[in-house]
Computed example of a mutant assay.
Amino acid sequence: MMPISMATAGQSYVVRRLSGNSEVRAHLRALGFHEGVSVTLINQLQGDVIVHVKDARIAINQEQALHIYV
């Protein structure tokens, strides 16, 4: 298991765990990140990532990306 910010661009992963306080986890879930959901890392730049989750492309910063484990 690793944070999505350490994943390889172009690869698909399954969200295994969300970390952080309840507000952080609630925010990530509102964006579509849930345990068991498939995500594809589209691009990564200095820890910030663009991911395809469900039917959307979402950009998240490095701090948020460190709370999503795949």
Rank of each mutant, 00 (worst) to 15 (best):
V53W: 05
G10C: 14
S12L: 05
S38H: 02
H67V: 02
A7W: 00
H34M: 14
A59C: 11
H34V: 07
G20H: 03
M2C: 11
M1S: 11
H27L: 12
Q64W: 00
N21Q: 08
Q11N: 10
V24H: 06
A7K: 12
V49L: 10
I50G: 02
N43C: 06
A59E: 11
V51M: 07
G32M: 06
Y13M: 14
H52I: 05
L66S: 11
L45K: 06
R29V: 03
V39P: 13
L28D: 00
M2V: 09
G10H: 08
V49I: 15
Y13V: 05
N21V: 11
S12N: 06
V70D: 02
V15F: 05
L66F: 04
I68Q: 03
A59Y: 04
S22K: 11
A59S: 14
A30R: 14
E35C: 11
S12T: 14
N21R: 03
V70F: 15
G47C: 12
N43V: 05
R57C: 10
Q46P: 00
V70E: 01
A7G: 13
M1F: 05
V53A: 08
I50C: 00
I60D: 00
V53K: 09
R57T: 10
G36T: 12
S12Q: 13
I60W: 08
